[in-house]
């Protein structure tokens, strides 16, 4: 199947970027985790970040919504400077959805309460309206019948889909995914990736850290290769997977693809 997204070609090029990252630096102790990283993302674009573990992808993602404070550099999301001192971070974070590998659903709340929690406490949405909205969002990720289940009663894949619905409840203009399927059993990754793909098809701007190459091929507009705190190279998935310029990228992809291939054999 040809995975090139048609929408990529139709997208206007001269629109205002939704995410601008300039010269980002971050170190933990004496370990330099981000070393001068810059990236620009257009509205509707889907970026997939790949790279070996410890290469700085997760830190990079957490800098975008300022769960981690960068040492140096600028981050602008929808025109809001996330690194400026006067910016109200609490407010700015509302429009940036975040789903991590651990799901992090609130275990003491049902699925629907998890989804309602943000709108009710942060936006002050009336409970009844928030509930309606939450039920609709859960239905959208295929969990309309599990509204009253607690997280521990759901499979990992279902939990991650609730986490996605929870992020969507805040009507984000940008979604961040940190290895959304890495904690899942292989047979459950499909349902989560389908939900994310549907979001992409609806035009959501996304930055996804993922090692699912099939997913990257089908959904990504651009694949960005991280290693050692820098962006090694980036490009459309087809070019990156078949014709990477950098040796580091080719080595990484070879290892990943050969492993996936062997697994397919079994």
């Amino acid at each position: 199947m040809d995975g090139t997204p048609i929408t990529a070609a139709l997208r206007p090029v001269d629109s205002e970027p939704i995410l601008i990252i300039e010269h980002l630096f971050k170190s933990f102790g004496d370990r330099l985790v981000l070393n001068d990283v810059s990236l620009v993302v257009q509205p509707g674009e889907v970026i997939v970040l790949i790279g070996p573990s410890g290469s700085g992808k997760s830190t990079f993602l957490r800098c975008i919504n300022r769960l981690v404070a960068p040492d140096k550099g600028r981050i602008i999301v929808s025109g809001t400077d996330m690194t400026a001192r006067k910016t109200n971070l609490i407010k700015a974070r509302r429009r940036i959805g975040f789903a991590s590998q651990g799901f992090n659903l609130y275990p003491h709340m049902t699925a629907v309460r998890n989804v309602m929690e943000g709108p009710v406490t942060v936006l002050g949405t009336p409970v009844a309206a928030a509930r309606l909205e939450a039920v609709a969002l859960l239905a959208q990720v295929g969990l309309g019948d599990r509204c009253d289940s607690y997280p521990r009663q759901l499979s990992g894949g279902q939990q991650q889909r609730v986490a996605i619905a929870r992020a969507l409840a805040m009507s984000p203009s940008l979604m961040l995914f940190d290895e959304p399927t890495s904690a899942l059993d292989p047979e459950l990754t499909g349902e989560v990736l389908d939900s994310i793909k549907r979001l992409a098809d609806d035009g959501m701007t996304m930055v996804v850290v993922s090692h699912e190459m099939h997913f990257a091929k089908r959904v990504a507009d651009r694949v960005v290769m991280f290693d050692d705190g820098v962006i090694v190279e980036q490009g459309p998935p087809r070019q990156m997977f078949t014709d990477a310029k950098e040796a580091r990228t080719r080595r990484f992809l070879d290892r990943l693809l050969s492993w996936e291939f062997e697994n397919d054999e079994i």
Binding site: R62, L67, M170
Partner: peptide, 15 residues
């Protein structure tokens, strides 16, 4: 309580 819980709450815009 796992740190991810705080992350999830903050990334939703909670104080």
């Amino acid at each position: 309580v796992p740190t991810g819980q705080r992350e999830a709450a903050l990334s939703q815009g909670m104080t």
